[in-house]
Design a protein around this nucleic acid. Structure first.
Lengths: 216, 216
DNA sequence: ATGGATAAATGACCTTGGGTCGGATATAAT
DNA sequence: ATTATATCCGACCCAAGGTCATTTATCCAT
């Protein structure tokens, strides 16, 4: 429901924002229903009730669309971590939250290898600035809750991000329909799931920060 | 130089293997010259001196081609680690070797999100088996050189692989021409280089294994 | 040497899908 | 009402991955 009853065009900024939001919502719905590979700009325009030409008035490219979805998801994740984590449950929250924000992991896994080449410079740089800021906020949380020195906490946060990116990619293959996997590979595929691999990374990377805090 | 002087067709298995090797070599050359995005199957056929139809007799899809390149690179990496690493330089070798095997990092960064959807089942499963085996060999090296308990070493190796995948992705954006990066983002881009991020991960993840070995 | 039989090689062709553009028209301004 | 503006539309363009009927190099039996 992007526009009011009798209106056929978005002229005010508010209406335009609503259109863009409707497009993002339609994209999310398509991804949920047909998976990422099922998302085409033709079909997305149809689902969002606009023509392809109009779609491209609101989104400069397919990757820019996905980037917008990812930014939203990342923001959700950071807010969630900030609000849920405390000194007692930090490891558990860090391991769980990424899976619980819809689309965060599949977007993280797919996006980084394409945005730099398919997104125009200015929107890309703007997005990077926002994303770096969000990353820094996670670093803050880790530093505050572990009590570790800031530099050490920042290093650990950086390494944790690497592991998260890797785990997100790893998770992609684990999503395959088990019925199509040969028996001997089933355990290996299952072991690639984010939920199976990432918690160990969190423990290994963040665990030592707690001890070092008391030592220092 | 895939075939002998007066021969125009590959009939023996040896000749076919030579053709395939020539195709892979041409692909590597193209990647080196024009980057990954510059590789098209049309151009690759031209460079390898065959028609497109013939190219597809030797390679089932573009992704299968890249997968073959990646397997070669991964094998190189593992052999390199096995032969160079000792108890004294393990961390340094693990941090350095991935960058020194040509194409390993950019392939690792790009491949995982597409092979599961664009490679036929049988070649994919065969490749996964070989890749899992190679991964296990790295785990062995880590276990042997650190003296850590096997389970602990395997967990650490697994987490290190995640970080490596993440760092490979991270490195992609760092490859951007610095001249096109706004000043305020230059430090952030530079900090995403593999060489800047991965060594810390190696230290954090593998370092503790040495201490635990004496403790246990 | 000769004549099929086999299968490697070819390139025109197909399909898909991201992205564009000039004309049509809803909305706002006067 | 008239005009100006900018949204909207969808037919169109093009790149690129992948296919297939046909051609022909090579092999082998005679």
């Amino acid at each position: 429901m992007p526009l009011a009853e009798n209106r056929k065009r978005a002229r005010s900024d508010a209406e335009k924002k609503a259109r863009k939001a409707a497009i993002l919502a339609a994209a999310r719905a398509m991804i949920g229903k047909d998976g990422f590979e099922g998302v085409t700009m033709n079909e997305l325009a149809r689902r969002a009730d606009l023509s392809k030409g109009t779609l491209y008035l609101y989104v400069r490219s397919k990757e820019e669309l996905f980037l917008a979805l990812f930014e939203n998801a990342l923001e959700d994740l950071v807010v969630r971590i900030e609000s849920e984590a405390d000194a007692a449950n930090l490891l558990e929250v860090m391991a769980r939250a990424p899976q619980e924000v819809p689309l965060f992991l599949p977007l993280l896994a797919r996006l980084m290898s394409v945005i730099d080449i398919n997104v125009a410079d200015e929107p890309l740089f703007a997005a990077k600035r926002r994303m770096f800021a969000l990353g820094a906020r996670v670093g803050e949380v880790i530093a505050n809750l572990t009590g570790a020195p800031h530099e050490e906490a920042r290093d650990a946060a950086s390494v944790l991000m690497l592991a998260m990116q890797g785990a997100a990619q790893s998770d992609l293959s684990a999503q395959r329909d088990p019925a199509t996997i040969p028996d001997d590979l089933k355990p290996a595929y299952a072991a690639h799931a984010f939920a199976r691999r990432f918690p160990a990374a969190v423990r290994l990377i963040l665990g030592p920060l707690f001890q070092n805090a008391t030592a220092a």
